[in-house]
Design a protein around this nucleic acid. Structure first.
Lengths: 332, 332
DNA sequence: TTTTAGCAGTCGCATCCAGCGATTGCTAGG
DNA sequence: CCTAGCAATCGCTGGATGCGACTGCTAAAA
């Protein structure tokens, strides 16, 4: 824990660095705070902060730059979120007031990217308690089956699953009919229960298939893989370093990693910085995410991704605002 | 048209520049060609080539760099494709010999990206003559309908369409049943014909709906929007210039532009350079694409995207090889 | 003990200059 | 038409210099 003065200095350090992007001198901090102490005192404090790992000097005769630890302290002690400029609020409101069709999520991530000047991600909610309308099975390879679920609202979940023994068309058809009976007209949970009942009284290969499909359905409940990405071209504005950019692009390419970061299981707004993310060692990356609820029990994620040096106050407000908008639009 | 000697010099210029990435001197060209003339003569020729727009000098005392026009001449006069190294050929063969499930296209684009060290794209073929298994309509908004087509092989086309008048659930259900009768068990063309017949004897809102859906089906025939992208992180290796990179990322973000470039309607292998592409003015970009046929009448596209300075011979072979592999795997 | 003024010391950075090396265009002669 | 030879051009590198922006430290004041 930092005493009050150190905290004030650290906050000023972060603010100034976020604002200018250059090492911050003791004089600059004296100007920004009203501690009524001289630059020499601030220098002493800064030396201590550096010792405790909150700041570094690029070189001896330069100012201080905040570390990941400093940013973490900064965001966890942020009091009260900032008011967004009214033009921005208005834009978000207008966006959600207007009609959107199937691609609301894509458009919302574009909006967020545009406002935050950061790459933005929206992960759609799972199928939750949507009522099923159709179940289809397809033999993709001897022991690979594709399971397609369609809800009454027109959402589609499409997943592959492996089965132990090769299956033939007959079995697939039988399993499909069975599954349709269990799922259609019910939501996933009900359907899964029904399928489990049926399964216990059946046996053989069809049973195996139904079980596999039910497993897929269970997964779909929380994790249909709907991921929308907006504002990729922002990347070049944010990370001037090519090596860093390369790492970022590689990370963004692996969907699994993205789903890990934008995890629907999470709750509320989160800010994760540097090592807290599954990106390479000391990557200059921070992520701001929040959840939004889509009706009953489905939840999605919205967030942005940026360099540690970002305006956290504003970004958090922006993400939360868009998250709320999404929740209201989609949660009916 | 260039005379033989100029052509030889130009080819050497391109080869050398592709190889080293530095302005090419008259001496280097003399070394690479066996024209039996002095560097002075080559200098004269180079001056003329420059005058005709095939080369530029970064500064007075530097060698020459080929222009887009030079690359264009070079590729259109490439004779005979290069043999790929046997290890590479083997890898491609192994890839297509192995089993792939739903994500063959994604994996193929990753393979191509990996081999070419360039970002690669695969555009899947349309639904072609696949037999339909299901048709679903969903009301997404008062006058927006989602049309979902599912084929017997497990492929899904999902598109939105606007209708003139708001529709209610009843009409949608009626239209859906009608469409199912027409499409299920037939391929798209047959289904469209059947639907047109039915439509002429019906009237009112249901008719409007069926027509809209049929329109969507017609589009799906050739252009289900399946696009697979591999090797994005290559970008940073290829374009060191941030401004250029930014432009590229922006381009890649707009799917429409990508579909324009990787257009299934195209035929055979194409190399497009610089202004021939719908990317910004003098973007340093070239694209190598080829088509592959997927059974009956469906065709897809494979290709890569790189800076003008690339090994066209090798790249063309690579793209064609992967294209052939895809055709064989998917065309049965 | 804490704070502060003052100052020496450090270091990056911009500028300048000179010399080097690569390469060209040109000229004059074959 | 070709070519040997040569002066001229120009980017690049490295060293030298001075400036400016900071810091850390010291010694005195609060």
């Amino acid at each position: 824990m930092l005493d009050e003065r150190k905290a004030a200095i650290l906050a000023a350090l972060v603010d100034a660095y976020v604002d200018r992007g250059e090492p911050v001198s003791s004089a600059a901090i004296a100007r920004l705070t009203d501690l009524g102490v001289s630059t020499a005192t601030i220098r002493n404090e800064l030396a201590r902060l550096e010792h405790e790992g909150y700041a570094v000097q690029p070189h001896t005769s330069a100012g201080r730059v905040p570390t990941a630890k400093a940013y973490r302290y900064y965001v966890s002690h942020l009091s009260g979120s900032s008011r967004l400029r009214s033009a921005v609020r208005a834009r978000i409101e207008r966006f959600f007031a207007a009609a959107h069709f199937g691609d609301l999520y894509q458009e919302a991530s574009d909006l967020l990217a545009d406002l935050s000047h950061l790459p933005a991600v929206v992960v759609g909610p799972g199928l939750g308690t949507d009522v099923m309308r159709g179940v289809h099975l397809f033999a993709m390879a001897p022991n690979v089956v594709k399971v397609v679920l369609i809800t009454a609202t027109g959402r589609i979940s499409e997943q592959l699953t492996k089965v132990a023994r090769p299956v033939d068309v007959r079995e697939i058809e039988a399993a499909e009919q069975l599954l349709a009976k269990c799922f259609v007209g019910r939501d996933l949970r009900e359907g899964i229960d029904a399928a489990q009942e049926v399964t216990s009284s059946r046996s053989g290969d069809v049973r195996q298939l139904v079980q596999a499909a039910t497993g897929v359905a269970a997964r779909s409940r929380e994790s249909v893989r709907e991921l929308y990405f907006g504002g990729t071209s922002q990347l070049t504005n944010l990370w001037a370093d090519l090596a860093e950019l390369h790492r970022l692009l590689e990370f963004l390419q692996t969907e699994d990693a993205l789903f890990e970061v934008f995890d629907r299981q999470a709750e509320g707004t989160m800010v994760r910085i540097g090592d807290e993310l599954p990106i390479g060692r000391d990557a200059d990356v921070a992520v701001v995410t929040t959840t939004f609820s889509a009706g009953k029990d489905g939840t999605g994620q919205v967030g942005v991704l940026g360099p540690m040096r970002m305006d956290y106050r504003r970004t958090i407000s922006l993400v939360e605002e868009v998250g709320e908008g999404l929740g209201e639009s989609v949660g009916e």
